[in-house]
Amino acid sequence: MRLIAEGLSAKRGEDLIFNDISFVLDASEALVVTGPNGSGKSTLLRVLAGLLRPERGHVKLEGGPPEIAHPSEVSHYLGHRNAMKRELTVAENLSFWQRFMGNSPGGAGVGIADAVEAVGLPDIAHLPFGYLSAGQQRRMAMAKLLVSHRPIWILDEPTAALDAGADRLFAELVKAHLEKGGIVIAATHQPLGLNRTRELHMKGFEHLAGDHWHDA
């Protein structure tokens, strides 16, 4: 499986935010998107997730299921907001996302009990989501990535509100996903704790795109 972005440009209103961004990610590869606030990191991720249309360019998937028209159909998107209803319990929220997202061809998600165990909070799935701390809420948002199988994870500041222990836990989840042939694109100001990543540094309208591999 290969994710290909070719000549992507995007606008905010009438202003061009970034221009002519291209990259290729194969299975088991991660791209970390860095850059100052306002440089277009979140906009790029929304374009990749199919939430925004690019001004120019396109995103495509090679080697995936033939019935998939756009990579967004086999992607998880985790944005700044956790997309969980505060009045519902954690288990109820995860059950909704499990049914709504379903599984992409070639895999299956884990059960809700296993997902909350994986994010280190096995005893609070019965609580309303709104009762949780900011860090606990972010961990439970991570559990959404596990309850349905999607080979591409698109993550916007995934470790926001997490302490050091939760950072390490999240890094292990991402590593496990990559080891299974998944693809990860993450916009972040903080290291994700991965051994090797490809980096895209954005600077607003101008950008530097490169294959910079970092060894832990």
Rank of each mutant, 00 (worst) to 15 (best):
P191D: 14
K85N: 05
G135K: 11
R2W: 02
F96D: 04
V33H: 00
L78H: 05
V90P: 08
E14C: 07
Q137M: 12
K203F: 03
E157A: 11
I17D: 00
I124V: 15
G210T: 07
P191G: 11
L155G: 14
L51E: 10
S104Q: 04
D20G: 10
T159D: 15
I124D: 08
R99F: 01
G40S: 05
G109A: 06
V116S: 04
Q98A: 11
R81M: 13
I154G: 00
G130T: 05
T188V: 07
S28E: 11
A125P: 05
D114L: 02
D156M: 11
G35F: 00
D211T: 12
G165R: 15
L132G: 06
R196H: 14
L162Y: 10
A27L: 05
V33T: 00
S133M: 02
P71E: 08
G40A: 03
G64Q: 12
L8E: 14
L94E: 09
P36R: 06
E172G: 08
S9P: 12
H212P: 07
I4N: 01
G107S: 09
I68Y: 12
L88H: 12
G193V: 09
E73Y: 07
V174P: 05
E29V: 12
V90C: 13
I112D: 04
D26C: 04
L94N: 11
A216Q: 13
K175R: 15
G135E: 10
E92I: 01
L121Y: 15
